[in-house]
Amino acid sequence: MKLKDLAHSRTGDKGDIINISVIAYNEKDYPTLEKLVTVEAVKKFLGETVQGEVIRYEVPNLGAMNFVMQKALRGGVTRSLRLDKHGKSLSSILLEMPLEINN
C-alpha cells in the first residue's frame, strides 16, 4: 500500500520552506497515518530534495498532518534552479511513499 491510497496532499511554499499536508480521505485512517507517516519516514523518503529540518504538526480535527520542511527549494521560489521552483509537485511525490501496515 502507498500513502496515496489513504491520503491526499497539497504543497505550499514560503521562501525556501515548503509545507506538505497529508490528509486522510477517511478520518478513521488518521491514527494509522499518524503512526506511520513520521518525520523520519518522510525525511528518508524525500531524500536530498529536502536539506533542512522537517517538523510535523497534527490536526486531528481535520484528519490531517502538516509537514513543514526547511531548505526544500534549493534557495527559495525566487532563486531556485529547479524546474518546479515552488515544489508544487512534491505532494504527489510524497504520496508515493510505501506504507507498511501490519493488521
Binding site: R10, D13, S21, I23, L62
Partner: peptide, 10 residues
C-alpha cells in the same frame, strides 16, 4: 482541508 493548510506552518 487542502486549502486550509496551504502555505500554513504551525
Amino acid at each position: 482541508k487542502e486549502q486550509l493548510l496551504y502555505e500554513v506552518h504551525d
